[in-house]
Each structure stands twice: as structure tokens, then as C-alpha cells.
């Protein structure tokens, strides 16, 4: 009989269950991913899961921590899945392994493990990959019916694990640039935006297929909001800032700047809004702080996308805003009951 303290009752929620619900909320997006781009993403998710759990166990052992309770908390899986969903599914197998292992070992455990990492492990993994292996990070699949040739699942597996393509087939024929990248490249060529969006890669709102995947993440995000795993502050402030910033540029020069909705449904914006910027460990704890943090992230995302050299800005927006978290939290402390000041 151990220590028995009040309160003697508690809510049944656990870290493990919260993380499980986050994984569950990713499922609609993953399902649509498979629907539009084929099952290769499941391979990266599996690789990421195995690497995440393996690295987590190894690091816990090296740190002399109990392994079972921490492996069961599902947090490593969330890291692995978020990274897998951020990189091209057709990338060589070691890419996701290196990224996940780096994220878990360096960004998470070297900073003290669960709850102590100042930077989002998945996004640190992403940053390492896009800086170290920029070529492999561009091997995005084209959605069904758009590519010149389509690989079967077995052929995809062969390429992922062995780097072997079917004879007479080039990598260019089966992969393509992302809608964000395509837009940037063609704008550099001074093509009018209307003409660019007439390209087959674009769908109703953003990229064909990828806009639907984003919609899946939006659905999952609404589930997280409904189950109160996340609060509205981060997604609303992030999407609103992204929308307003994009809107201002678009209104100023519609021929060069895409409509705000395009930015919502492109790249990792919706994944970020509901799953990455809402990471409790690396985001501010105060409501006001969450608003500032997410607004900053929205602005940085847009600036990197439109004016930066990287195709998307979500990962670097996360890391840059992670740096500011302690300061934001310090200056957004809510008013304590019975103390002077305004209620926030």
C-alpha cells in the first residue's frame, strides 16, 4: 500500500489515451492519402513507427528509465507519424528512419525525454532531412491519374527499399513537385497565376489529392477540438493569420499571390494547425500565449512559402516559434484570482 493522498479520485484520462486520440485523429487524413496517392505512405508510417519505438526504447534504456510505461504513452508514435506525413512517401527507406531516430534521440531524449523537449521532435527531424537530403525530400508522388506512369505497390516497395526502378522508367516520370513548389517555380518564370492554376496538378482549392488529404486533417482536427484534446486558440489563430496575410498580399497583387484558401489547403498548413503547433510540450501554456505563438507561426509559414527558398514553411515556423515559447509564456501570465489586473 503506497502513499494515499487526496484527491482519491481522478479522471480516467491518461497521457497514453490522449496521444492515442491524436493518432486516431490522423486516420482520416491518412485514409485520404492512401486513396489519392496509393499505399506507399503506409510503408513510411510503419517504418516511422518501428524506428520511433525502437529509438525510444534504446534511449530509455541508456537513460536508465523504465521502458514499458513510456513506450505505452504513444508519444513516440505521434512523432513518427507526423514526420512520416511530412516527407515524400517514395523517399528511400533510410530517410524516414534517420529523421525519426534523430527527432526522438536528439530532439526529445537528449533534452530530458517526454515533456521536456523545447523543440518539436518531428519538426527537428524534418529540418535535419530537408537540409541534409534536399533531393530525396522532393520525391513526392503524383496523385492518381496525373503522373506519366504509375508504379504498382510492389514496384514502390522495391524502389523504397532497394532504390530500383522498373526498366526504362525514370524517377521524374513517377514523381512531381508539390503544388506549392510548382507555384513558386512558375511564378519565378513570370507566368501569370491564373495560367499556373490551370495546370492539371491543381484542384478546386489547392493541389489535386493533397487538398483532400488536408481536408482529412481538418476533420481529425475538429475531432481533437470536440474531445477537448486541443483548444481552439492555436488552430484559429494560425489559420486566421495565414488567411489574413495571404489575403492582404492577394488583394494587393492577385496576379502574383495565391488566394488565402490555397495556403490553407496546401502543404502542411492544416496538419500544422491541428497537430503540430498544438503539441502541448513545445507550445505556450497560456491562452494568450497560444494565440501569439500560432499567429507568429502563421506569419512565418506564409513568408517562407512565398519569399523563402524552402517549399513549405511549417517546420521552420514551428522551430522558430518554439524558441520564443518561454518568453511568450512569461509575458502572458493570466491574472490570478483576487489579484489586480485584467482578467484574460
Amino acid at each position: 500500500m503506497g502513499a494515499f493522498f487526496s484527491p482519491f479520485i481522478s479522471q480516467p484520462d491518461t497521457v497514453s489515451r490522449i496521444m492515442f486520440k491524436v493518432l486516431l485523429a490522423l486516420v482520416p487524413g491518412i485514409a485520404l492519402y492512401v486513396w489519392y496517392f496509393g499505399p506507399a505512405i503506409l510503408v513510411s508510417l510503419t517504418l516511422a513507427s518501428l524506428t520511433a519505438l525502437g529509438t525510444e526504447a534504446l534511449m530509455l534504456k541508456l537513460r536508465n528509465r523504465p521502458i514499458a510505461p513510456f513506450l505505452k504513452d504513444n508519444s513516440a508514435l505521434v512523432t513518427g507519424w507526423l514526420l512520416a506525413l511530412s516527407i515524400p512517401p517514395l523517399a528511400p527507406w533510410w530517410l524516414i528512419v534517420v529523421g525519426t531516430a534523430f527527432g526522438i534521440a536528439i530532439a526529445k531524449h537528449l533534452y530530458g525525454g517526454l515533456g521536456n523537449n523545447p523543440f518539436s521532435p518531428a519538426m527537428v527531424g524534418f529540418a535535419v532531412l530537408i537540409i541534409s537530403f534536399p533531393v530525396q525530400m522532393t520525391q513526392w508522388l503524383s496523385p492518381h491519374g496525373l503522373g506519366a506512369v504509375e508504379l504498382g505497390f510492389l514496384e514502390q516497395l522495391k524502389y523504397i527499399f532497394l532504390g530500383v526502378l522498373p526498366p526504362n522508367m525514370s524517377l521524374d516520370a513517377i514523381t512531381m513537385a508539390t503544388p506549392l513548389d510548382t507555384l513558386k517555380t512558375h511564378l519565378h518564370l513570370d507566368e501569370p497565376i491564373k495560367q499556373i492554376f490551370a495546370m492539371p496538378i491543381y484542384g478546386r482549392l489547392a493541389g489535386q489529392g493533397s487538398e483532400m488529404v488536408s481536408l482529412g486533417f481538418l476533420l481529425g482536427g475538429l475531432y481533437l477540438l470536440a474531445t477537448r484534446i486541443i483548444s481552439w486558440h492555436v488552430p484559429v489563430a494560425y489559420l486566421a493569420t495565414l488567411f489574413v496575410t495571404a489575403g492582404i498580399f492577394h488583394l494587393a497583387d492577385p496576379s502574383h499571390y495565391a488566394v488565402p484558401l490555397f495556403h490553407w489547403f496546401s502543404g502542411a498548413a492544416l496538419l500544422g494547425a491541428f497537430f503540430i503547433f498544438t503539441d502541448p510540450v513545445t507550445s505556450p501554456t497560456t491562452y494568450k500565449g497560444k494565440l501569439i505563438y500560432a499567429a507568429g507561426a502563421g506569419l512565418i509559414t506564409y513568408l517562407i512559402r512565398v519569399f523563402g527558398s524552402f517549399p513549405d514553411g511549417v517546420a521552420f515556423a514551428t522551430l522558430l516559434m518554439n524558441i520564443c515559447v518561454p518568453l511568450i509564456v512569461l509575458y502572458t501570465q493570466p491574472r490570478v484570482f483576487g489579484k489586480k489586473g485584467k482578467r484574460s
Binding site: T14, V15, I18, P66, P69, F70, D73, S75, G113, L114, G115, N116, P280, V281, T285, T286, Q333, P334, R335, V336, F337, G338, R343
Partner: peptide
């Protein structure tokens, strides 16, 4: 068993004294 704090802020959400 107790796990590390993940700063989920549920405690702050229920605190009747508006503490963190």
C-alpha cells in the same frame, strides 16, 4: 504510475484560482 508533465494545461483549465 506518474509520468512527466506534458504541459497539456488541463490543470490550468480547471484551477479555480486562475493559477498555472
Amino acid at each position: 504510475p506518474t509520468l512527466p508533465c506534458i504541459r497539456c494545461t488541463r490543470c490550468a483549465q480547471v484551477c479555480p484560482a486562475d493559477l498555472q
